[in-house]
Design a protein around this nucleic acid. Structure first.
Lengths: 234, 234
DNA sequence: CTTCATGGATCAAAATCTATACCATTGGAT
DNA sequence: ATCCAATGGTATAGATTTTGATCCATGAAG
């Protein structure tokens, strides 16, 4: 008998480039209004021709993820913060339950990652996490905070030395496209920073239970934020 | 600043078909010596041309995942059981640690799935899981047992109503390519069947803790099997 | 020994991607 | 005011992949 031989969905190269860039924006790694590299450099990075890259940029421009300007100081720029928030809200309103599922998935895998990373983290990942926490301290805007948090969590995934787990976290973060304003607002943001520091310390001293507890608290904050956002939308 | 803009890796349609079929074999959904549908039907299922499908079959044939015979009653057949075991062993020897990581990933996500499915499972998924347990009872060979277990776990993933979690389980099972002989040998297989029934009952009565406990025991068995296999290889 | 479902082979057309070259725009330097 | 340099915009020819259609080859069943 045959079980679920679904149709194959070949993705064109330009579509993959769209996905990659969109994921970076969703995860917060690309900041609002940030300038992307020139087309010739980007196409090199992606290993695709400039013509193909431009197709990808056209799609992202149409979806209002980026704007493109010509001339000397021109280039492709991520949309401004307000626009991104609007996109995030719209996306969340289209499928409100989906956001919860993404958070749920992240909770499961990041809790496990916190435990596993304690005993497996290498010096490189520890450095990335320390730097991420430093970035959180320096960050004075919501997008910068979100970026630093994403960098920390990606490093945490790598620290587990488990590619599947790292990928799960990456996918989750890319899927979780939250508006900047609500999630880590002022006070919540400060509390979160404390928890990240606590987690970092636990990882440093290989305190598994403490790491898990810190991650649990972080996710309590995340759940609160998402719930508040859901109510605000309703 | 730019974070991890990796090269894009466009996959040809034939490569995706290869992956899909190989995953089905790894997960145990396709049985040893099982006959695949005729090329004209398979290409329809995949939504690709017959020429492209044949490229995929050629790759799988080269890797000895399938054998192709001509004439009436001919067709593409999954390799026989011994050959598959050999392939699985070879794969595990190439990267022994990797198997552990896959099991680790499955443990994390299936434990969560067992809990979540308790309160979310729909009648369709319950039916699939009941049927899977029935298949385990009827199964008189290791491949059939493995197939039924995979069907159960995939249904469990769907029962969480969380696409990311379901996909994680699917990916994990596809990645976990264990030889048939060692894992669920006679006694262990019987014990596992008992645990699956326990899990099914827990899901039926929405007993979250019991479901989690049953899944935990299942994974203890899995870990034991994998450890034994690792020692046997060494 | 015929039948016929099946794999094997070929070819032209369409879609996609690449490499290269050149044009157009714009802000800053001279 | 002019030029320069960096950037996006456009055009074209060729390579690769996929498709759809057609016909050939094989071999087990009747």
């Amino acid at each position: 008998m045959l079980w679920g031989l679904r149709p194959v969905e070949p993705r064109a190269a330009y579509g993959l480039a769209v996905d990659l860039l969109r994921r970076q924006i969703h995860a917060g790694l690309l900041l609002p209004a940030e300038k992307l590299p020139a087309e010739r450099q980007l196409s090199d990075r992606f290993g695709i021709s400039r013509v193909t890259l431009r197709e990808a940029l056209r799609v992202l421009e149409t979806d209002e993820y980026i704007t493109v300007r010509r001339g000397a100081q021109g280039g492709a720029f991520v949309t401004d913060e307000d626009r991104l928030c609007e996109l995030a809200r719209r996306r969340m309103l289209r499928a409100p339950a989906k956001t919860m599922r993404v958070v749920e998935f992240l909770t499961v895998n990041q809790m496990a990652a916190a435990r596993l990373a304690c005993t497996r983290r290498g010096p490189a990942e520890m450095k990335r996490m320390r730097e991420a926490v430093a970035m959180m301290h320096a960050a004075r805007t919501a997008p910068h905070r979100k970026q630093a948090e994403a960098l920390f969590l990606l490093a945490l995934g790598d620290a587990t030395q488990n590619p599947l787990l790292a990928r799960a976290i990456e996918d989750g973060l890319a899927e979780l496209f939250l508006p900047y304003d609500t999630p880590s607002t002022s006070k919540t943001g400060t509390v979160a920073l404390g928890e990240f520091e606590r987690l970092l310390a636990a990882l440093n001293s290989e305190d598994v239970d403490e790491a898990e507890a810190a991650m649990a608290d972080l996710h309590r904050l995340l759940w609160d934020a998402v719930r508040r956002m859901g109510k605000a939308a309703a």
